[in-house]
Design a protein around this nucleic acid. Sequence first.
DNA 1: GCCAAACTTGACTGATTGGTCAAAATCAAC
DNA 2: GTTGATTTTGACCAATCAGTCAAGTTTGGC
Lengths: 212, 212
Amino acid sequence: MNKPEPPPKQATRIQKKNRRAILEAALQVFSAHGFRGSTIDRIAERAGLSKPNLLYYFPSKDAFYLAVLEDTLEEWLRPLRDLDPAGDPIVEIGGYIAAKLEMSRTRPEASRLFANEILHGAPAIGEFLAGPLKALVDDKAAVIAAWIAEGRIRAIDPRHLIMMIWAVTQHYADFNVQVEAVLGDDAAPARRFKEARATVIAVVLEGLRPRH
Amino acid sequence: MNKPEPPPKQATRIQKKNRRAILEAALQVFSAHGFRGSTIDRIAERAGLSKPNLLYYFPSKDAFYLAVLEDTLEEWLRPLRDLDPAGDPIVEIGGYIAAKLEMSRTRPEASRLFANEILHGAPAIGEFLAGPLKALVDDKAAVIAAWIAEGRIRAIDPRHLIMMIWAVTQHYADFNVQVEAVLGDDAAPARRFKEARATVIAVVLEGLRPRH
DNA sequence: GCCAAACTTGACTGATTGGTCAAAATCAAC
DNA sequence: GTTGATTTTGACCAATCAGTCAAGTTTGGC
């Protein structure tokens, strides 16, 4: 009925090492070229393995892709999960922006992987978006709404605020080529991210701080 | 030496009609599937022509792609060009945000076409970004810097402000699937864009307005 | 050292797809 | 309507690429 599935009971040492290498290589290749633009051969080359060997660990190209997405999703959402309802709104939201920007700087491939997936209609993670992700956003939007109700930040639509923050922070990863081209490469990346953080945090937080 | 290039002197009636149909079809297909994910056959089908017929009008797949990009670029940048140095900063920037959001709503394919191109390193329009686009941004950043110098808006990095506005407005086109999934499809698109505009304009403009 | 399980690979297949070409159909000017 | 230029297409080619397979090599427990 079913094939003897590579990991029958426990992952062996070699399996662990190779799966890790494959997922890392797949992330690099998929994020750089998109799903259709990536080839198994290229991932194999990058992972230092042969193509049939990759297909020994994962049954198909789709399987690589799905595995990489799953592997990266949790990490990607952690900053939002960490938004603390008990904290100070300005500190929490500022910290969230900083954390997302930092992630865009250190792990741009992950951002680009999702960007490409969603840009093309999220064929692989559509249900995830409408399910767990929506749930998380609803949850955190409620937190923000509570802050508004307490008069601690100005009254704006919390879910669109979250969209704004995603948009701005991920922009620096997804469209890095454009950012570099437009800003000039005279500014080192680290410096550029500092400027970005200062600007984004200044505008958004000042836009949220209530007038008295 | 060179092939007899389809348009020898003047574009004929049929040429005009078919070129237009091809570019429109190519925009739809390229923006939906990316360059690698698109096939000439698919563009042909959408344009109501045969594949060899498409290749009679453009010499290669790259040529379609380049033509569509060029065809769309000017329109895409117009709102920024229209930013008026003589106007009121809050009105001008608010208007710019509204115009970009409106464009994301009415022409999301154009936005996704560029998003995909830039996401993958802007192989086709790299020099454009570093040339004319940078020049335009530098120009408008100077306008904003002047407003800051006059104390009419708060002191933030003008070029990162432009990045922010691009990021937020284009997000609603590029990642529309995610926005819909997360916000729930109960809200009609038109309504969603109104909410987005209200939120973005409120946060950004309030973040820019000088304190007294 | 032996052996079964785990791992690896060269050589292949079939489907897709960018692009060609020669012949056919259509158009436009007279 | 004749004719030359323009437009259209079916059939084809070559390259690319996902996935297979049977035969090899390595590993790990004994």
